[in-house]
């Protein structure tokens, strides 16, 4: 039983490091800030989560701590990239436009105004 858990953990670590590598590659290859943010967040969130979960499978007494860290990463990583992307949009950083598409512009009209909300 313990050996199977160890194999599952090693598989998760390989999977996670593959996705971390893909995220780093995406930061180099993508054309503008928003695409890089997307690659850096999505791939590295999945990569880091599965890597830490794999450590928890290999050492079963660390499982509770690694679950807490997984929950933390699952909340903190998209949140920080959301804040980065929003502040970049508010400061008029133009996205790379191959197709003319700016979905947030239409959404921002529907959303309540910032000053009214608080």
């Amino acid at each position: 039983m313990m050996e199977y858990l160890k194999y599952i953990g090693q598989g998760l670590i390989v999977f996670g490091s593959l996705f971390l590598f893909l995220g780093a590659l995406g930061i180099f290859r993508m054309p503008d800030f928003y695409n890089r943010l997307q690659a850096g967040t999505k791939a590295s969130t999945l990569g880091a989560m599965s890597l830490i979960l794999g450590v928890g499978f290999i050492q079963p007494e660390w499982m509770i701590k690694s679950l807490i860290i997984v929950v933390f990463i699952a909340v903190a990583n998209p949140l920080s990239s959301h804040a980065l992307g929003r502040s970049a949009y508010k400061n008029n950083l133009k996205p790379f436009m191959k197709k003319k598409m700016d979905a947030y512009e239409k959404v921002a009209e529907i959303l309540p105004k910032e000053e009214d909300r608080l």
Partner: peptide, 18 residues
């Protein structure tokens, strides 16, 4: 000057105890 988004506020309320 500007208020932060409600996603950030709720998320930081969740992250603060952690």
């Amino acid at each position: 000057n500007k208020p932060s988004s409600s996603l950030l506020q709720t998320g930081s309320k969740f992250l603060f105890p952690l």
